[in-house]
């Protein structure tokens, strides 16, 4: 009986995921059209940037023709989307390098940094939020919420440069340039160097990669940490005021069990949402953190190429980001169904 219901639940979940994927398709297509049109609406084009001070209408026109930018917009769009459906993301305008290979190389750098920042932000943020809620208005609450406010308020580049100056230059404790020291190499398997170095038993690479992660992670995690802590706190406060919590206490359940099983589980719903949103935001690249720490990720790359108007890169990366959001949102919604089964049937 239990197995059957589990099986039925599995089918329902499968249907649910399938429906959600179908719903996501128009979103991705819409984003692709929007991005395609928007990048072309910004004045100035790649030909002008490439030619710089030497740009004249004649040589800009010649270069536009070579880059295929003189075709009609719909024609350009269908050529691009046609190539994407065949798995070809195209090549960069500057340098003629295949974009897929570049994404494959840069995206793991962003993933590694994002996951490490979000992991720390979650394992610190949730307990801080819970404790603050339980000890509401105590000095712990005031202190942690002060730091949470500080975390969202301090500009990333100020914090990053501060950490570099303190821990990189004055104390020489941690490196702050790129993912590895210049002479150190890690054989890429997943592209996440900390994992790859363990897989290949490269301990020099492991420590080096880990050291390089410290400062950018600290910089990048402050905002998610602050947000997660605050959301956890307010969600917990709300749940703690519910009748069923009072009932649970009245039944004589130990406090820790009330908090873990009844309060936290119900408070997690908004927290999971916010973690998902943060993950989406982090995976789309952290331009400032990546710039300050010379982190070869996707955010800085996208930013540079918006400036350079390298259309194929902007289009490919934005599409990737849109898909990340769709996938993360989907994952969050699926997580909901585990936390709160009512969602599945809604």
């Amino acid at each position: 009986m239990a197995r059957l219901s589990f099986f039925k639940g599995g089918i329902a979940l499968g249907k649910y995921i399938f429906r959600r994927i179908l719903e996501a398709l128009p979103v991705v297509i819409g984003v692709s059209i929007l991005v395609f049109t928007l990048v072309r609406l910004i004045p100035g084009d790649p030909a002008t940037v490439l030619l710089g001070e030497r740009a004249s209408p004649e040589n800009v026109a010649a270069l536009r023709e070579r880059l295929g930018l003189n075709r009609s917009l719909p024609e350009q769009y269908f050529i691009w989307i046609g190539n994407i459906l065949q798995g070809d993301l195209g090549t960069t305008i500057r340098g003629n390098v295949p974009i897929a290979a570049e994404i494959q190389r840069r995206f793991p750098a962003t993933i590694e940094l994002s996951l490490s920042a979000l992991f720390l932000a979650t394992v610190l943020g949730v307990p801080i939020g819970v404790i603050s809620a339980l000890r509401r208005n105590s000095w712990i609450d005031t202190l942690s919420m002060f730091f949470a406010l500080f975390g969202v308020s301090i500009p990333v580049f100020v914090l990053g440069l501060l950490l570099i100056f303190l821990f990189g230059v004055q104390l020489s404790l941690f490196p702050f340039v790129s993912r590895l020291d210049s002479g150190v190499e890690v054989q890429a398997i997943t592209g996440l160097y900390v994992i790859d170095s363990v897989l290949t038993g490269n301990w020099v690479g492991f420590w080096d990669a880990l050291e390089h992660l410290v400062l950018p992670t600290l910089t990048l995690m402050t905002i998610p940490l602050a947000i997660i802590a605050r959301i956890t706190r307010s969600a917990m406060l709300e749940v703690l005021n519910q009748d069923y919590i009072r009932t649970a206490y009245a039944k004589g359940l130990p406090g820790s069990m009330v908090i873990r099983r009844h309060a936290l589980r119900n408070a997690l719903l908004p927290v999971v949402t916010i973690i998902g949103l943060q993950l989406g935001a982090l995976l789309s690249g952290a331009v400032l953190t990546e710039t300050i720490f010379s982190w070869p990720g996707i955010g800085k790359w996208l930013f540079d190429n918006i400036i350079a108007r390298d259309y194929p890169i902007i289009q490919a990366v934005t599409l990737l980001i849109a898909m990340i959001y769709v996938v993360v949102n989907l994952a969050v919604d699926i997580l909901y169904t585990f936390i709160d089964p009512r969602v599945r049937n809604a």
């Binding site: 580049f157 440069l161 230059v169 340039v177 790129s178 710039t291 010379s294």
Partner: peptide, 18 residues
């Protein structure tokens, strides 16, 4: 070595990275 931020590049010079 690519170090996009000017302040970070200066810090890298100070600590001998470049």
């Amino acid at each position: 070595r690519v170090i996009p931020d000017n302040a970070a590049r200066f810090a890298a010079l100070q600590n001998g990275e470049i």
